[in-house]
Amino acid sequence: MSWMPTAPTDNLYKFSALWGLRMLLGLLLFFAWLISIQMQIEKEMDSAQHYYRSAMILPDIEQRLDALKQGKVNEHRLAWALPHWTPQDERVILEIAAKRHRQSMAASKSIMDQKAGEALAYLRRLDVLLIGFIYIVLATGLFVFGFMRWKRKLHDVEGKLRDAELTMRELGIEKLRIEIAQLRRSGRRS
């Protein structure tokens, strides 16, 4: 008795085919993960735009607020501030804008720290691409080879055996009919 178990040769092709199919399903899950990473990167890009836009505008707003607090109404005017605003109205609006920009920067900062792009950068390496290619070839090869061999060596043979057995039964029934017909003829003669 051998200590090494032997593979079931009658189901080896089926095993190969099903394992290849399982690997292909894993590949589909991998692509779903890539799509989610891509969506996360787009979210990070939007957050980065919001962050840097707020980071560029906030110092100008703060300079204008300081000028308004010091009573210097004509210094550091913002191009987008409406000319009919009074200094008091402008100050209230700019304080609200500054608060919202700080909140936007804080919210965007946490999303930008996730660094989903690093996962895609890892996938661009040549060795990772080579392993991915080998995985795809192996999964497809196992799937195609296993099902083709399983069909040819097992399924087709079983189909031929079933057809042969059906033919044998039909021939046996036909032989019995002939024998019954002969017995009936000989029974009438006697």
Rank of each mutant, 00 (worst) to 15 (best):
K69L: 03
E42W: 09
T140Q: 09
L68P: 02
L78W: 06
S36F: 05
I134D: 14
L123W: 11
I111H: 12
L78C: 05
S47L: 09
R64N: 08
Q88E: 10
G117R: 05
H84R: 12
S36Q: 12
A121E: 12
Q103S: 01
M45D: 13
A106Y: 08
A119C: 07
Y122N: 01
R64W: 03
L58N: 02
L68G: 04
R124D: 00
R124Y: 01
A97R: 15
Q49W: 11
H76I: 07
Y122H: 07
L78R: 11
D60Y: 06
D127Q: 04
A119V: 08
D89L: 00
W80S: 08
I41A: 00
L138P: 13
F30E: 15
V144R: 05
Q38P: 00
I61A: 15
A97M: 09
E118M: 11
V137F: 13
L138Q: 15
G20A: 04
M112I: 08
S104D: 14
T140L: 10
R124P: 00
L138I: 13
P59H: 01
L18H: 06
I111M: 15
L27F: 06
S104K: 14
W85Q: 03
W85H: 03
S108Y: 11
V144Q: 14
L142E: 15
I131Q: 08
K69S: 12
S47Q: 12
R64I: 00
S36W: 03
R102C: 06
N74V: 01
L138E: 14
R91Y: 05
Q40N: 13
A48T: 07
L65T: 00
A32D: 07
D66Q: 02
I134W: 14
G26D: 15
K72S: 04
M23R: 03
I57T: 06
I57E: 10
Y135F: 13
Q40C: 05
S36I: 07
